[in-house]
Each structure stands twice: as C-alpha cells, then as structure tokens.
C-alpha cells in the first residue's frame, strides 16, 4: 500500500521558486493499478520519482509498504529501491554498453545472492518480459520496444511488490504500447501494485480494473480541483 500525505515538492528559491507538487494526498491500495494522467509539467513524473525515493519531497510524507520512504537515509533508500519497487523509465535508462541479461542482473549485484542464483532470476524475469531471446544482445542494438522489455525485465528481476512506470509508452509505437499494456495487465493480475505516470490516451480505458487520477499544475483533480 502507498500512502501520500500532503506532499509538496519545490525546486529553486526566491524568484526562481517552482512548485512542482502542491499538497498531494493520495492512497494506492495493494494490488491496485493507478494511472497518473496529465499533460507535461503537471507533476506526475515528479510524484512518481518521490514514491521511488529517487528524490525527496520538500514537505509531507510518503509511506510505501509501511516504510516512510520520504525520509529514508541513503543505505535504506537504496535497499528500498532494490527490494520493494521496480521502476520503468520513459527513456529506459539502460547501460548501453551491456547486454540485455547484464542490464537485468544489475539490481541484484549487491543482493548477497551468488551468480548462478542471479542468472536464474534474470532468466525468469526476461521470460516474463518476453526478451529472453535477446539476452546476449547488446542493448545499444535493440529497438525501442525491445529496450522497453529489457527495462521491464530489470524492474521485475527483484520481484518487487510495487511497479512504477514513468511515461512507459512515450517512445513506443502503438503495437509495442499495446504489448506493454498487456504485460502490465499480467503483472497486475499477479498481485503487483502498479502506478503509471502517462499522458498517453491508451491508458484512459485499460482492459482491466484501474483508477485514473488526473493531475494538473502539481495538484490532483482535473484542473487542480
């Protein structure tokens, strides 16, 4: 379960002060799929990065699976990102010089598991993301859709309870976008809590149960209402 209480995020100061998020309060139930929709600059990606502990809120608190992630020290925040969540980024954020399998194992390098165990988990994850056939191929040579599936495999490799997707279909064609939605549906059916930040209309009417939350000007509600 994700609980967001009165969260604000400000960048800059003085005349350059910009409020990306204004007093956001939101709850996401376990196993729920939530779509954060809104135009660019509405604050949805910022909110997602705060849930992922990739950044810290300026005010308020965020609790994920009972853990206060908004104030975690580095070691705990790293452990939280490594175990509890899996993030799929808009630009995939893969290490281009490595192969698909090598990218997928990255989150498990410091997990304490040995290499055979890590390889086995990576294989399962690549299987789920339908990218196993490209395991040894360098990421740089993959298509956008394949990179997306590699990113999904990496996000799933540690079997996280929460999956966060930031504009997951922004760089995909329609066919790959539908394929991604299909993958998300399967993950949701497997009990994963999913939060997707997107402005893609495809997510307005998903073929499975989901909740769409509109964001604008750093606030929740159609026009920030």
């Amino acid at each position: 379960m994700i609980r967001i209480e009165d969260v604000g995020k400000r960048f800059g100061e003085g005349e350059n002060l910009f409020e990306a998020l204004k007093s956001i309060t939101l709850e996401v139930e376990e196993g729920e799929c939530v779509i954060l929709s809104g135009i660019s600059g509405s604050g949805k990606s910022t909110l997602l990065s705060l849930i992922a502990a990739l950044d810290r809120p300026s005010s308020g608190k965020i609790v994920v699976e009972g853990e206060l992630v908004s104030k975690l020290p580095d070691l705990h925040a790293s452990a939280y990102r490594a175990k509890t969540i899996g993030v799929i980024f808009q630009h995939f954020n893969l290490i281009e010089s490595l192969s698909v399998e090598e990218n997928v194992i990255v989150p498990l390098i410091n997990s304490g598991l040995d290499m055979p165990a890590i390889r086995k988990m990576a294989e399962q994850s690549m299987q789920r993301a339908s990218i196993l056939h490209k395991a040894s191929q360098d990421v740089a040579s993959l298509s956008g859709g394949e990179k997306q599936r590699c990113a999904i495999a990496r996000a799933l490799v540690n079997d996280p309870k929460v999956i966060l997707c930031d504009e997951p279909t922004a760089n995909l064609d329609r066919e790959n976008s539908l394929r991604f939605i299909d993958t998300i549906q399967k993950l949701n059916q497997a009990g994963k809590t999913i939060v997707i930040a997107t402005h893609d209309p495809l997510f307005e009417a998903l073929p499975f149960e989901s909740r769409v939350i509109h964001m604008a000007d750093g606030m929740i509600g159609k026009h920030g209402e």
Binding site: S78, R81, N93, I95, N158
Partner: peptide
C-alpha cells in the same frame, strides 16, 4: 554521470 544515476536508481547505495 548517467551510469551512476542508473545504478543508484536500481538500488545501489553510495557505498556500492
């Protein structure tokens, strides 16, 4: 810089 950011995003600590 990006590579370090990616490693941090997938759960690597500063120490790692």
């Amino acid at each position: 810089r990006k590579e370090i950011g990616i490693l941090r995003a997938v759960g690597w600590s500063i120490r790692d």
